[in-house]
Design a protein around this nucleic acid. Structure first.
Lengths: 236, 236
DNA sequence: ACCTGAACACCGTTCAAGT
DNA sequence: ACCTGAACACCGTTCAAGT
């Protein structure tokens, strides 16, 4: 009788399933993550997973919980502005570790307790900072998905399929073709053109993210100090 | 011999395929839109589509082109601020007509000519408004997906599966359970509580969208007037 | 030039059965 | 209580063939 060669399997449980799913998505991407592929990874038949998650949707919700729990808790010693800033930057670090998380967070209503906890404590930071409930409400909307550390790339390389390896010659040709049809895009693209060399510097993602975040935080502060209220809103 | 009862079919072409795909997605949602379902809609075998779009990804890109072309062109008679504002609100109207568009726009790198044209003319509005190329670059990042009219709902009902019909009694019970664990969330939820009646007013999406948009536009203007430059950026 | 039919390699999920 | 095996109703896409 041939000896069984697979490693002795630990008993499955919900947490092991979710942890494995997160790690697998980190490695192979969210599109390639299927119930069948995950089962294979765990050395188990696909249907075995259904004892621990009701279906794929619940698996994705569970994965969101795992990663949202990775975001640092609020630092109570700082003022509201620094505290919110630090926390959102922590969310951004989480997103950078799990590039698939953005599309998953965006694709669901995400009202799990972990997600609600995150929002609850974020709202608490504004209220503690002297924001009215009214203003806090609108401020949370304005912050929007940036609360999750979403960086809004103009052309989001991470959103689409993997880019083909960079062909410098082709890129230069493409940029020069663009110069005619899209002069403004080229102008703001931080592209340095000398003689016939064209070099795209690319964006400093962290700088762009903080630029937008600080613009919003400064705006929030100004409204708070001005005693802003939605009572002045135009009648619909 | 039985007469053929299907309506006499028009010849397929790329445009008819894309138009049909947009209408079908409007009707049945993006998840239910498959090559097979679309072929059925057009009274054709699935493989017939592949003569007009290379694959499903190209179909989605084509659908994006169709709806981005629906956004109003810039109005040159207004100042930059009103022009940008009006145009982004036009994009938002388009998104409301095509609820699936948000996730599709977000899921691709979207560098099609139609999309580039939209960005080109948006950038042009800022440059014409006296913004430096430097500031315009960062402003476009800060505007981010709001440029496409994306409204950032705290709990995005449209992002998830269809909500079950509202059960008032269940909702009240849920809100009261939430009051203990998530007091801050409840506090900013525009929820009026009298005696034991709990009524959630919900958000005015248009107001939230314009609040955030105007906050950003005001911030942009202030930076422009202050002669902002990224040269002062902190060293990484 | 355009459309068809059969097939391939995948999905998520059900059901009834095993231990 | 947990895992399995076979099956169902779907996918996107290929290939070779029809008209």
């Amino acid at each position: 009788m041939a000896q069984v060669l697979v490693a002795p399997r630990l008993r499955l449980n919900r947490d092991r399933v979710l942890q494995a799913a997160v790690q697998l998505a980190d490695r192979i991407g969210i599109d390639a993550l299927s119930m069948r592929r995950l089962a294979e990874e765990l050395g188990v038949v696909p249907m075995a997973l259904y004892k621990h998650v009701a279906n794929k949707d619940e698996l994705l919700d569970g994965m969101v919980d795992v990663i949202v729990a990775e975001i640092d808790p609020p630092n109570g010693d700082l003022g509201w502005k620094a505290a919110v800033r630090l926390r959102v930057l922590s969310a951004r670090q989480m997103l950078l570790r799990h590039p698939w998380a953005r599309s998953v967070l965006e694709s669901r209503t995400r009202e799990t307790p972990t997600v609600l906890d995150y929002m609850e404590s974020t709202i608490g930071m504004f209220l503690a900072g002297g924001f009215s409930a009214d203003l806090t409400h609108h401020v949370m909307h304005a912050l929007g998905s940036r609360m999750w550390g979403f960086t809004q790339e103009l052309f989001d390389a991470s959103a689409g399929p993997d880019r083909p390896p960079v062909d410098i010659a082709a890129q230069v040709a493409q940029l020069q073709a663009m110069a005619e049809r899209y002069p403004h895009i080229l102008q703001i693209s931080e592209v340095a053109t000398h003689d016939d060399s064209v070099v795209a510097r690319g964006c400093d993602d962290r700088f762009e993210f903080e630029f937008a975040l600080d613009l919003l935080l400064d705006g929030f502060e100004r409204l708070r100090d001005a005693g802003w209220s939605s009572d002045a809103r135009p009648t619909a």
